[in-house]
Write a protein that binds this DNA or RNA. Structure first.
Length: 585
DNA sequence: ACTCCAAAA
DNA sequence: TATGTTTTGGAGT
């Protein structure tokens, strides 16, 4: 199979990409509207991570050094943005607003300020109810169970700018896709306006049929605007594909999924030499610029050649074919379903000098405190179960518990023989099973953090840096990963809440408990707790290997995994668990 | 499971 | 990777 024939377009989806305008700056402006009229820059350490459009008008830009920014624009208002809490909170709020505005649940966050929405179902539904005799007075229905909920729109043309700007006649071949994109563009307009009206944030939006195209096309008109990539998406005898012309115009390194390493390898092949330093387009101009078109039309280019350029140990399998698709706007990756818990939480800070164990301990303490707070924020929810909400006290319950704790550092590289300091960004890490005491919801956070540092992180640090001195760290990161969802939150494929049903079948299980006391008496109380939704003992977590620094845990063994639902259950309860599966609703 | 790397914001 | 912080996903072991 050759390259061209292995590429097939799938343009039946409707993907809308949201990018909130200068997000960090907008969060501060939302808190303090007086800032809107002034050039505003958000600072982390020595750089500006974002600035508002007033600041951009005066020559400031992202990732600019503070010193330079002050020179260019002395009256810039600078705010510190190293604590990400407010950004994370705003991001979550906007995200859930968008997610609940669509039907599919396919809403994927990328960083704090971008969201992909799969609106295929909404658009298809509204295509079907179109009155083709009066397209300019159409009604976009937003609720299948209530035909009065929605907005009026003109379905005869797209809303807002398109790529290319001047649309030619639409061929019969392209008519279906065109109409769906028209509807997508009006839905995008509606969602943007709702976001601004309800939440006060503006966004820039792209509308197309997959993630890469909607994301890239959105960049054409910013801020507070949107762009729709209109057909033809396929080349034909009469016209070239708009997708190809659009993708061709990009620098190879500006394609999402093609980062620094991959773009440098590709540039080297196209130029026939090592490309000069980094991006080439900021300073260099035309000399180092390698466009998608340069790559696509290079003699012999195809998935095989890309595989040869990019393949090898450490690289993704099938990388050639993947990149070959990307540069032509082919991307069949689904917009992922909303996730209830993150797969990792990490906290880090960078330092100019960190070379004593005492200082390290202090920093680890700060990091651990925020880490535990983050775990509570993101991994627990209110336990509104009637059986637990005694005396009006709202308890929290773990949605998921991380099984792994990881410590990462970035050692400052030693000075070279010639005295130069070679900059390194290499990190090293060690991980270890998460100690279970960290899941206590009753103990005070400071105490937990102290214990985490003392019992886990310091021993781990010694493994990472066995030398008692000589090191100097430029960064420390503490992370929890490997989330195990707790039973309380797990839903089976039918959406039934397993733990709730467990509780309902309490009486069925009672007889088993009596029998079981002979087998595993020390487990009984924990199982009772489990059945009542208690939060403090983790009967469901997988067995962790015993380690020297972690002693006090006896509830880990004798577990089995149910072949039906994958849940871990105590071995003695497996039969009862299987019986539960057979019970009628 | 553990460690590192690449990429993204 | 000019610069910062956090998250995801993949590969090799």
């Amino acid at each position: 199979m050759d390259g061209a024939s292995s590429l097939k377009r799938h343009d039946s989806r409707m993907i809308i990409h949201f990018d909130y305008d200068c997000f960090y700056a907008s969060v501060f402006e939302a808190e303090n509207p007086a800032l809107k009229n002034q050039p505003l820059a958000v600072q982390q350490k020595q750089i500006i991570v974002t600035c508002n459009y007033e600041a951009r008008r005066r020559g400031l830009y992202k990732l600019q050094l503070i010193t330079e920014a002050k020179k260019v624009c002395p009256d810039v208002v600078t705010v510190l943005g190293e604590d990400l809490t407010r950004f994370r909170n705003a991001s979550k709020e906007l995200y859930s607003f968008l997610r609940k505005s669509i039907w599919s649940g396919q809403a994927e966050r990328l960083g704090f300020d971008e969201v992909f929405l799969d609106c295929t179902d909404m658009v298809n539904y509204n295509i079907d109810i179109l009155n083709h005799n009066d397209l300019p007075h159409s009604f976009f229905c937003l609720d299948q169970s209530d035909p009065t909920v929605g907005f009026q729109y003109d379905a005869s043309e797209p809303f807002g700018p398109t790529y290319p700007p001047e649309a030619g006649a639409v061929s019969d071949q392209d008519l279906q896709l065109y109409r769906r994109l028209v509807l997508g563009s009006h839905l995008a307009r509606y969602l943007r306006h709702e976001l601004e009206k309800e939440k006060g944030y503006t966004a820039t939006v792209g509308i197309s049929t997959n993630k890469i195209l909607s994301k890239l096309v959105g960049n054409l008109h910013k801020p507070k605007s949107q762009t729709t990539l209109v057909p033809p998406y396929d080349a034909s005898a009469s016209s070239e594909s708009h997708v190809t012309t659009f993708m061709d115009s990009h620098d190879i390194g500006s394609i999402p999924g093609i980062g620094f390493k991959i773009s440098q390898k590709i540039r080297a092949r196209i130029l026939g030499r090592q490309p000069a330093f980094d991006e080439g387009l900021v300073y260099g101009g035309t000399k180092e610029k390698v466009t998608v078109r340069d790559v696509r039309t290079f003699v012999g280019m195809g998935p095989e050649m890309l595989e040869e350029i990019l393949g090898g140990p450490g690289s993704q399998r099938g990388i050639g074919g993947k990149i070959w698709g990307l540069i032509q706007g082919v991307d069949d990756v689904e917009v992922s379903q909303a996730k209830k818990v993150p797969s990792q939480i990490s906290i880090e800070d960078s330092y100019t000098r960190l070379d004593t164990l005492d200082e390290v301990r202090k920093k680890l303490n700060l990091l651990s405190n925020s880490l535990i707070r983050r775990m509570h924020l993101d991994l627990t929810e209110d336990d509104d179960d009637a059986e637990n909400a005694e005396h009006g006290i709202l308890k929290r319950r773990w949605l998921a518990r991380p099984r792994t704790l990881r410590l990462t550092t970035r050692p400052r590289p030693a000075v070279n023989p010639d005295g130069t300091r070679s900059r390194s960004f290499n990190r090293i890490s060690r991980s270890l099973p998460m100690p279970t005491f960290a899941f206590s919801l009753t103990e005070n956070v400071h105490a937990l953090a102290d214990r985490l540092v003392q019992d886990s992180l310091i021993p781990c640090f010694r493994k990472l840096h066995p030398e008692r001195s000589g090191w100097n760290l430029s960064l420390v990161n503490v992370a929890v990963t490997n989330m195990a969802e707790t039973a309380a939150d797990s839903k089976d494929s039918d959406g039934r809440d397993i733990s709730r049903m467990f509780r309902r079948q309490d009486d069925v299980l009672k007889e088993w408990r009596v029998v079981d006391e002979d087998v595993a008496p020390h487990l009984t109380d924990d199982v009772n707790d489990l059945l009542e939704g208690s939060v403090d003992v983790d009967v469901y977590s997988e067995a962790t290997p015993p380690t020297s620094w972690e002693s006090d845990d006896e509830v880990q063994d004798n577990m089995d995994v149910c072949g039906r639902c994958g849940l871990s259950v105590p071995s003695f309860a497996l039969l009862a668990h299987e019986r539960f599966h057979q019970m009628p609703d």
